[in-house]
Write a protein that binds this DNA or RNA. Structure first.
Lengths: 243, 243
DNA sequence: GGCTTTGGTGACAAAATTTGTCACCAAAAA
DNA sequence: TTTTTGGTGACAAATTTTGTCACCAAAGCC
């Protein structure tokens, strides 16, 4: 058994039984007492708080507060969470928001430096405010569901975004612009972008955008990729050619 | 060098150089070509998208979109993020919220089943609504900063919470209650709890609560805990006695 | 005080895993 | 056609993990 799997098994046992002795764990997992002790040591290193007591009635005890996630989020997902928390904070005073911040800070720190810079840039270009009253919202439409993934790609990767835009007059135009900022004036969301054709910045209301497509500027050459095998069980993971 | 460290090194090289050949990576990292190939295979298994091309000018390329976090959040932090996103969603339509949900779903799934149940229970007892207008908010005070950690502990662990409460009349009382639900009526937050002394449920306005202390029902025996050493470099991680 | 249980450490050999070497294949470019 | 480059299989060498054993400290029980 993999040492990683064994750690999970040990945690499961500790969670279920409350208190467990090293001897029992060794028997349950099928390894020696020494190995269990080494694993406990490693788990403590991984941030789990494990209490221990000598003598009769003693044993190991996992602090339930120290249970952690192991999820791996993409940069886009982190950004989405950042927006939620930032919007929330701007809207109202909110218990737990410090904790949410702490969590996000942890998440941020676990990303490579260039991605952290990206996230900061994104947040800097995010403006949240209140819409001035008495604005006509009668034509507020639904937001194109395809917009979200496309928009994330364009915004996070700083690559141009192409889409159809329905102006207030009803006229349809096709645009290809460089996303610059996101302006949130509840309940409206605006994309602020540089339009190279008109050599000027423009605002685009999100619910008037449709068929968004990020413009891949440096596409990878399409070709056949053979499989990987070896000991490693992840054979089919070489990205497939887009034909 | 640890294989984990080597994976990080490889990712760093790929990020910096854009395209790298297996040969170059092997030289840079100081291992054989075969090992690099095995590592690439493992990284693909870990969810990284790595493109590859044969022939002159070929090499390996890391898809920047596939970069992931490795942060490990505590259950309390996850709950805080869940609140932010839930409150956000209830307040307004919001691009990116699907993505935030997807991220949170990932995080949730990486927790053990009992913790997932806890989180669901917590979210079920979380009510978000709008305050009826014309309510007098002139005495709205700041929320006790000590409330947050104490409240989290009590709410997440379902243990009693003791605090001082300043009633609308100004009278100070000490309470010890079982937290049941959280009622959010912006900008007010209420704690709904069972008061055993009065054998009834009561509402407590969060900004009128002070000196909150979770009542530890089953404290771990205090005692001296010797250090762990061995090969594992995490010597001082056995939790210190609270004296 | 002595006995037993239980966490914890150090040292060293045994077992298991990781890594290197080598021979070779397929795709792509010069 | 030759060279470059990713990828695979097999097997020995190097390295790491694990087990064994002897022993210490703390705590409870008689």
């Amino acid at each position: 058994m993999n040492s990683r799997l064994r750690h999970d098994t040990i945690l499961r046992h500790l969670r279920r039984s409350g208190t467990a002795t090293v001897h029992d764990l060794a028997a349950a997992v099928g390894v020696s007492r020494r190995t269990i002790l080494r694993d406990i040591c490693a788990l403590r290193g991984d941030g789990f708080t494990i209490h221990s007591e000598s003598g009769r009635g003693g044993g190991l005890q996992l602090d339930p507060q120290s249970v952690q996630t192991t999820a791996r989020l993409s940069v886009a997902e982190v950004f989405a969470l950042l927006i939620s928390v930032a919007a929330m904070r701007s809207a109202q005073n909110l218990p737990f928001s410090n904790l949410a911040d702490a969590g996000l800070a942890k998440i941020e720190k676990s990303l490579p430096p260039d991605k952290i810079r990206d996230l900061r840039r994104m947040l800097d270009s995010l403006h949240i405010g209140q819409l001035s009253a008495h604005q006509d919202l009668s034509d507020l439409g639904p937001i194109d569901p395809a917009l979200l993934p496309a928009f994330e790609t364009a915004f996070l990767g700083q690559i141009p975004l192409r889409f159809h835009y329905r102006a207030a007059s009803g006229a349809q135009t096709q645009r290809q612009v460089d996303p610059q900022a996101l302006l949130i004036l509840q309940p409206l969301w605006y994309l602020v972008a540089w339009d190279p054709l008109r050599t000027d910045f423009r605002h685009f209301r999100m619910d008037r955008i449709s068929d968004p497509t990020p413009v891949q500027t440096t596409p990878f050459r399409k070709r056949h990729v053979p499989f990987a095998a070896d000991i490693c069980p992840y054979r089919d993971l070489a990205p497939k050619p887009a034909v």
